[in-house]
Structures are given as C-alpha cells and as structure tokens.
C-alpha cells in the first residue's frame, strides 16, 4: 500500500474545479521558479506543474517552446532546478509535479532524478514522451520506490480499451488532452470535445481527470470542470508571465488565477 501523498489528499478533499497551473522553470528569469510557485499558491490554484525545459519539446506549441528556450538561455538545468527547489517546502504546500521530456532525466540519471524529487518534496511527474509500456518496463519500479506518482496523457484518439488500461496503471490523475493538438494550439471548447469528455466520463475510470491543452480562461475552465475534476492551464499562464513586469509579476499571477476561478479578469487586455 502506498503512503498518501499530496495529490491523493487534494483529490480526496476536492473533486470539482481543481485548477492546475503549468509554468516553465527558470522563466521569465532564472530565479523566478520558486517565487512563481509561491504566487500560484497564494493565488488559489490547487496543483503546480513545473516544466523542466528541453531543447526539443515536440508536444508543445510556440508559447511553451519559447518559454523553454528562454529558460535554457537563462541557464536552467535539472541540477539548477533541484537547487532552487531544495527549500520550496518551507513556503509551498500544494502538490508539485515536474513536467518535461525524458532525455534530460536520462542524462541526469533516472534513479538520481527520482531521489532528488523525493528529497525536495516533488509529488509526481508528467512525461509526455513516456508511453505506458515503456513506463511499465523501465520506470515504474524506480518512480514508486521514491514515492513519485506518474500522470499519463490520453487524447480524443485514445481508445476506450487503452484508457482503461492507462487508468489501471495510474496512481495520480489522468491528463485528458482536450483535442488533437500540441499545447496552446486551440482555444475554447467545441461540442465535439464535450462529447469526448462525456465518453471518457462514462467509462467509470478510477483516477481523477484533469483536462488540459487549450484551456485558457474562465469559460473554458468552467466547461472543462463540468466534465472532469478540473483543468490545467499552461500557455495562457506563460503569456501572463511574459507580459508581467518584475514588479507586477506576483500581483498579475494572483489576478489571473482568481480570474480563472471567478471570471473577473479581462484576458484580452493581457494575453
């Protein structure tokens, strides 16, 4: 039996309107990682996804590609990231998930990476280029040894049968990619997407579900939350970071997150 971690606690206490916010570590400035996390928590989000920048992010659209590039140019690396996160649990209590691509982790050393995650208080991982079979064959044992939960993605193309298999091997939440798309590619939620959300909703899967990709404002967040436990916002949040000045960063993050939740935010003026 696994010991409960922050992800379990969150979903035990909250089944609706869970808001997960993604941003890229070391962006907009190298040392912004932990301050941005603190501001996300203060703003009222429920999960923090910290992007580990990579030179070749194939599942990401232009906004996150650009934030990856800037973070790398700023000097971000996994070594640097773990140094920054070393003290985060003094100020951040939300579940923290690292999201990124496999190659930097392999180079860092998978076991050492997992050990570091546990040491600094990371709860889980989202690795878009780690499919289920490879996870089971190569990564599951070490992730679980260090108490790390793995989140799988599913898309409108994923068969019911495969969704059920993924559900069976999940111990976190299921990341429902909202459409055929890379991140930030489309905005808003169509009827076709709602039918997909409903189809998945009726499969009776065990794990909580969060909807991501193309969620950018109060309206899309609310719609997505109707069909799942909540939603994930990445590109739209990166745009807020991009547009903020160093002085306004904290405040802008708070306003954005409150706006996602209560609808009182004028996105057009910021994004």
């Amino acid at each position: 039996m696994k010991t409960e971690n922050r992800i379990d606690t969150l979903f035990r206490n909250k089944q609706k309107n869970v808001l997960s916010i993604y941003f890229t570590a070391g962006y907009p400035k190298l040392e912004d990682t932990v301050p941005v996390m603190e501001a996300i928590e203060a703003g009222g989000a429920d999960i923090i996804e910290v992007g580990m920048p990579f030179s070749d992010p194939v599942a990401d659209g232009p906004t996150i590609q650009e934030s990856n590039k800037i973070a790398l140019d700023n000097g971000m690396s996994l070594k640097k990231l773990f140094a920054q996160l070393a003290e985060m649990r003094k100020t951040v209590s939300l579940p923290v998930i690292l999201m990124g691509y496999l190659n930097p982790i392999i180079q860092f050393g998978v076991e050492k990476f997992c050990q570091k995650c546990q040491e600094v208080g990371v709860d889980g991982l989202i690795l878009p280029d780690l499919p289920m079979q490879q996870f089971l064959d190569e990564f599951k044992e070490v992730f679980s040894r260090f108490g790390l939960r793995n989140t799988f993605l599913i898309s409108p193309q994923t068969s019911d049968e495969r969704i059920k298999a993924i559900d069976e091997h999940s111990d976190s939440f299921i990341y429902m990619v909202s459409s055929h798309s890379i991140t930030g590619a489309k905005s808003g939620i169509t009827q076709e997407q709602e039918r997909y959300f409903e189809r998945v909703g009726q499969l009776g899967i065990q794990n909580p579900r969060l909807i991501g990709f193309g969620i950018s404002d109060h309206e899309s967040f609310t719609k997505a939350s109707k069909h799942a436990h909540g939603a994930i916002i990445g590109s739209a949040f990166i745009k807020v970071l991009n547009n903020a000045s160093p002085e306004s960063l904290n405040n802008d993050i708070g306003i954005f997150i409150k706006g996602i939740k209560n609808g009182e935010y004028d996105y057009t003026s910021k994004a």
Partner: peptide
C-alpha cells in the same frame, strides 16, 4: 530504438 512518443501519436 523503441517508440517514445506522446500519447497523442500512439494510435498512429
């Protein structure tokens, strides 16, 4: 070798 691809490409 192998196939380390995002789930979105898995069906293809």
């Amino acid at each position: 070798g192998g196939a380390y691809i995002p789930e979105m490409l898995y069906p293809n």
